[in-house]
Design a protein around this nucleic acid. Structure first.
Length: 398
RNA sequence: GGGCGGAUACCCAAGCGGCCAACGGGGGCAGACUGUAAAUCUGCUGGCAUAGCCUUCGCAGGUUCGAAUCCUGCUCCGCCCA
């Protein structure tokens, strides 16, 4: 590998928050061999969102430069549960669940990373062999004070919340992974910095050259808060194109620049030009690119056009699902809330009732705001719209 | 082992015998305005074929005409003492 150090450095640096430290990285690159770049995967939440894709895209770029990506499956650490960013104890996972989640993960991460060229290890491979004495020895490598430096522990304790004894082990285990696989570099989210740095300590104790650590930002979700499935603001990498496009269009303008930088390959100059134009145009371009990446450029283009047609030109979407209501239409008519719930346009009939009362429901284009509205079986499929985005053509059971 | 405090809906957090399906905030949903952005205003936010009924306030019992509120036991968490 003929290393152009500056070129590689530029790839390492793009969009990263921490890089500890650049001189060390330079020296490692100067060795002229592929670097072993470690990335830890938490098998507790298998569904990836685009925020997870950021480090993966970084890895892919490095992979394409010839570096060796080493994916560590936290099969043992998952049983501990990463305390990072948590204000509660996490449930511990079983081995079976870990394997199921891993399979899903590999499948989804494979959209970004070339899994054929990726080394995968389960850290249970080595931690299962660790006996009690070994565990004690490992614990003896650090101090309680050092572990308690972490913000998350500190905050939780101050807030009177529980911190499990086993959680203190987490950084230790993650750090030991670096020793086991002789990592040259480790990548993680900014919230992982403490864990990443801890690997350096252990590697040094073991006489290894400490890994370079670098972090990618945690991206904000469609509501501007940190993207997380539990906030309901995440965009899954498996999201259907239309949904994905729509969700990207709903991100706050302020985060567009960040999204371009982290989730597209647009050059800094292109990004600057796009952001200088009309925000709506820029966001369209962003959505087109991201959908294009996770699906295909053709699909990205198609969704872009569909989006304009539906929301600017107020046309009906071209893919309204046909739904058959399989309940009974009683003689005196079917109450609208029951139908909405029955065809999945509302979560419950109470929910449906509220939507109707708020004027969110249209039948064949006409707002119906009476929750007692009764329906007879339609001769032709009935077009129902709920809110701005939910559509269905409903027909009666044959 | 002892003492004290806590557990409320998606999250935070009031309530401390009836007026409680439970204040307030966040989030979410819907409407207006827009660029399906933000900001702003408004309404809603347990379920039910809904003027009514049913299930919720850690779990299980009890007291009472009536309990999220009182009592007993249990589980979990925190703090202090050992």
């Amino acid at each position: 590998m003929a290393t152009d150090i500056e070129e590689h450095l530029a790839v390492f640096r793009r969009g990263v928050v921490d890089l500890i430290d650049e001189q060390e990285l330079r020296a490692k690159l100067a060795l002229g061999r592929p670097l072993r770049i470690k990335f830890g995967m938490d098998p507790s939440s298998p569904d990836l969102h685009v925020g997870h894709a950021i480090p993966l895209m970084k890895l892919r770029a490095l992979q394409d430069l010839g570096h060796q990506i080493v994916l560590i499956v936290g099969s043992s650490t998952a049983m501990v549960g990463d305390p990072t960013g948590r204000n509660k104890l996490r449930p511990q996972l079983t081995r079976e669940q870990v394997e199921i989640n891993l399979a899903t993960y590999i499948d989804q991460a494979g959209k970004v990373l070339d899994m054929e060229r990726t080394e995968v290890h389960r850290n249970s491979d080595w931690f299962d062999k660790l006996d009690f004495g070994g565990l004690l020895a490992l614990c003896g490598r650090t101090t309680v004070a050092r572990m308690l430096e972490r913000d998350t522990f500190d905050q939780r304790m101050k807030a009177g919340e529980a911190v499990g004894m086993h959680e203190l082990l987490y950084p230790l285990l993650q750090g030991w992974d670096s020793v086991e696989i002789r990592a040259d570099v480790e990548l993680g989210g900014t919230d992982q910095l403490f864990n990443l740095l801890f690997g350096r300590t252990l590697q040094e104790q073991e006489g290894q050259s400490p890994q370079v650590c670098f972090t990618t930002p945690l991206i904000n979700g469609s509501d501007g808060r940190k993207m997380s499935k539990s906030y309901g603001n995440a965009i899954a990498v498996t999201e259907e194109p239309k949904e994905m496009f729509g969700k990207i269009m709903r991100i706050p303008d302020e985060v567009m620049g960040q999204w371009f930088e982290l989730l597209t390959d647009a050059s800094p100059a292109q990004i600057e030009a796009l952001l200088a134009g009309h925000p709506n145009e820029a966001k369209h371009e962003l959505a087109r690119r991201i959908v294009g990446y996770f699906h295909s450029p053709q699909i990205g283009q198609r969704e872009s056009e569909a989006f304009i047609a539906q929301f600017r030109d107020k046309q009906l979407p071209d893919d309204i699902p046909d739904v058959v209501f399989d309940g009974e239409w009683s003689a005196d008519g079917l109450p609208l809330p029951v139908l909405l719930r029955g065809v999945g346009l509302a979560q419950s009939s109470s929910d449906a009732r509220r939507l109707i009362e708020q004027g969110a429901v249209r039948l064949d284009g006409e707002v119906v705001s009476d929750p007692k509205h009764l329906l007879v079986p339609p001769a032709a499929p009935l077009l129902i719209q709920v809110g701005k985005r939910r559509f269905a053509r409903v027909s009666a059971k044959a």
